[in-house]
Design a protein around this nucleic acid. Structure first.
Length: 547
RNA sequence: GGGUCGAUAGCUCAAUCGGUAGAGCAGUGGCCUUUUAAGCCAUUGGUUCUGGGUUCGAGUCCCAGUCGGCCUACCA
């Protein structure tokens, strides 16, 4: 293999040739391991601490350094000014000039020796020395490699043949370069894993969204913003768990395969279980099994899980998405208000470090701190339509009003659905600041308790932030007969779509409870200031590539 | 599902009225021991998404298809 001629027309062939040459010389380009003592970040923090301790013992060196830095800044400013004048034609390069004097830079001892490993993301050869940057799990660290610091010959025959994208391990002491960047002075290095394919261009990274989604690994190497967003997503989920564990909630797992896909109204994905020779649906909600946990005496439960809805793709919809559902016995929708607000505040404190979020769309600042606005559904609809008698109008009048308001509404919809359309198209999208929408009409949700006033509204809220529904929560329906009736109205003739197992469980008695569902992806969109659900899902649904 | 825009070198992008497909980065060879998108010299690299058509001539115009973005529809 090693005498295969190099095909320079193919970047991969060049790298394969390097690989073959290494193997021929008995070097394994894919090592079993590398002993790390630090990550990029912990190495940097360590040096800062060591340097700080040194300055404390030697304050005069710190003073010298500050003098040096100030003088150096003046020097660069003077050079820049001169360059600007030459460009503007006020001076020529031959004109005599004086530059401010800069004192000698004081010596600062090198830090301790660290061992790190990561992927090469920049590689700047400057003759007999090279600057390299490697990326590891928590960031980038610079390496300084001098020819004479490596065993004889290695720099030219091996080191300079490294490629962008290769993963290397290095060992050496920390120091600060002339420009102030904390850097590892490499004494020892090894190729840990050879990259046979080139990375995307370093400055622009990947921009083709198709490639970004299909080859997310490349996006993560190249695009630090994207990388950070997925780290934040993971920390959000971690902190949600902590928040609920601390309130004595039990995390449970319920099945993804459902005989009847209940707990929401959405088209399910269907599949077939061979061993039982029967059809199953992928779950569209977690609700019904979690309520059966309440019947079973698990008074505080939650599940963080994937649900699947066989519906369209959009900026806000992916067919599989992550849902949190929480149920707390002896609580109600009011209790859920406190819970969700507490949870979001916890995330602001512990993940984001701020309560102010900038919208990706228009830069509006969303303030998540303090108490959140609470407003009734009917008031919002009346306000949006400018009609205080909206709810006593006939369907025809409502449709006519919709046309005037410039929204398209399917005339075959039920009366309450027309209103709901108005809500979704005119109201919800404008609820940018956190808002609890309460007293929602009973036709919309069959699983919640009716308000005691008997006006046909439900004891529920929908939390809207950023123009999207983030979390609906109910005082859960625990009357088995009312529940059955509500289901019957929903399914009509199709009684095979009744979840009898759930209804029977309710007949054993379910404690009064508050329950809530949180769309994790939408929450992450909000908290990471993303504009598209696909930026928050590692591998979003795409049509499989052909061939 | 409908509308609309797009696909050119490994990556990011050019290409005038239909007239020899270019640049930067990456790669390759050389210079360079503190760089910051390092710099300098030289240089390789193309099924212009696929398949048809019009034309003396197509990256460019037409038709069909594939994949994608955005809008829209569906969506408790």
């Amino acid at each position: 293999m090693s005498d295969t001629p190099v095909d320079t027309s193919d970047l991969i062939a060049v790298r394969r040739q390097k690989l073959a040459d290494m193997r021929a010389r008995g070097i394994d380009p894919f090592r079993a391991n590398w002993d790390q003592t630090h990550t990029s970040k912990s190495a940097l923090t360590q040096f800062e601490a060591e340097e700080g301790a040194f300055f404390e013992k030697n304050p005069e060196v710190k003073a010298q350094l500050e003098t040096y830095e100030a003088a150096d800044a003046k020097l660069s400013a003077a050079k820049q000014e001169r360059r600007a004048k030459i460009e503007a034609g006020e001076l020529t390069a031959e004109d005599p000039y004086e530059l401010p004097e800069v004192p000698e830079k004081p010596e600062i001892p090198e830090g301790s020796v660290v061992s790190v490993a990561g992927r090469i993301v920049t590689f700047r050869v400057m003759g007999k020395a090279t600057f390299v940057k490697i990326l590891d799990r928590d960031g980038v660290v610079q390496l300084y490699v001098q020819r004479d610091a490596l065993p004889e010959g290695v720099y030219n025959t091996d080191f300079k043949k490294l490629d962008l994208g290769d993963i290397i391990g290095v060992r050496g002491p920390l120091f600060r370069t002339k420009t102030g960047e904390i850097t590892i002075r490499v004494q020892e290095y090894a190729l840990v894993s050879k990259a046979l394919r080139p990375l995307p261009e370093k400055f622009h990274g990947l921009t083709d969204s198709d490639t970004i989604y299909r080859q997310r690994h490349l996006d993560l190497i190249t695009n630090m913003e994207s990388r950070g967003r997925f780290i934040t997503r993971s920390r959000i989920i971690q902190e949600i768990r902590k928040f609920l564990w601390n309130r004595d909630f039990l995390e449970v797992e319920t099945p993804c395969l459902h005989g009847v896909a209940g707990g929401a109204a959405a088209r399910p994905f269907q599949t077939h279980f061979n061993a039982l020779d029967c059809d199953f649906n992928l779950r569209i909600a977690l609700e019904l099994h979690l309520k059966r946990m309440l019947v079973g005496g698990f008074d505080r439960v939650f599940e963080l899980g994937r649900v699947f809805r066989n519906e369209g793709l959009s900026r806000r919809h992916n067919p599989e998405f992550t849902m949190l559902e929480v149920y707390q016995a002896y609580s109600d929708h009011r209790g859920m208000m406190e819970l969700i607000k507490g949870m979001v505040h916890h995330l602001c404190e512990n993940v984001l470090g701020t309560y102010q979020i900038k919208r990706a769309d228009d830069g509006t600042v969303i303030d998540l701190s303090g108490d959140w606005r609470e407003v009734e559904y009917s008031d919002l609809v009346k306000e949006a339509t400018g009609d205080s008698d909206w709810f006593s109008r006939s369907k025809e009048e409502k449709l006519a009003a919709c046309a005037k308001l410039g929204i398209e509404v399917n005339p075959e919809l039920e009366d309450y659905e027309v209103t709901q359309d108005v809500y979704e198209k005119l109201v919800e999208v404008k609820l940018i600041q956190p808002t609890f929408v309460t007293r929602i009409p009973k036709e919309l949700i069959p699983l919640a308790k009716l308000n005691e006033s008997g006006d046909g509204t439900l004891d529920i809220f929908e939390l809207a932030i950023n123009g999207q529904e983030i979390a609906p929560a109910y005082s859960e329906q625990n009357d088995p007969d009312v529940q059955r009736e509500m289901f019957m109205e929903q399914v009509g003739e199709e009684t095979q779509n009744l979840d009898e197992e759930f209804l029977q469980a309710l007949e054993h008695g379910m404690p009064p409870a508050g329950g809530m569902g949180v769309g994790i992806d939408r929450l992450v969109i909000l908290l990471t200031e993303a504009s598209n659900i696909r930026d928050t899902i590692l591998f979003p649904a795409l049509r499989p590539e052909q061939g």
